[in-house]
Amino acid sequence: MWVRRVSALARAAFCSQSGSPAGLSSASSPREEGGCREKVTLELLDHLEHLALVDFRDQEGVERLQKAIEFADQLHSINTDGIQPMDSVLEDRCLYLREDKVTEGNFAEELLKNANQTVEEYFVAPPGNIPLPQLEDRDTFLQKKKPEAEDLP
């Protein structure tokens, strides 16, 4: 009996809502495509590079983001009216509280051992409060994109 059911399934479309999961990653409608590309402006890419301190190394990096956004856009077709967001599966459990005792410390040596550069017992960084240079002055792939801003695909 079960075998029959299974083979029937094999023939039927499987997901009642919006298409197959594997197919979710395939070509989206032209409208969605255009909409996504509108979102991915040079300004946005620059903003992300600043916030994440990670760069889009090449065009592939930019396309990766575009594809990621397109893929995520599929969420919008799902009806979530009246549904509460779920932070964690443990949302109904309450937080464990620790007693106010000193149980750790004096690890300076161990901690500093792992740091590439230290000065006496301090971690050391270059001068702070100097933001990443503007797009024009920065060595980033995005700089090369600028002249073709209007031609962005």
């Binding site: 901690l111 792992n114 590439n116 270059p126 702070g128 100097i130 990443l132 240079p133």
Partner: peptide, 16 residues
């Protein structure tokens, strides 16, 4: 800063 790979860029903390 505290562990792991560290670049040699040192113009500013953000650049590092």
């Amino acid at each position: 800063l505290e562990y792991g790979h560290r670049s040699s860029a040192d113009k500013s903390t953000e650049a590092l």
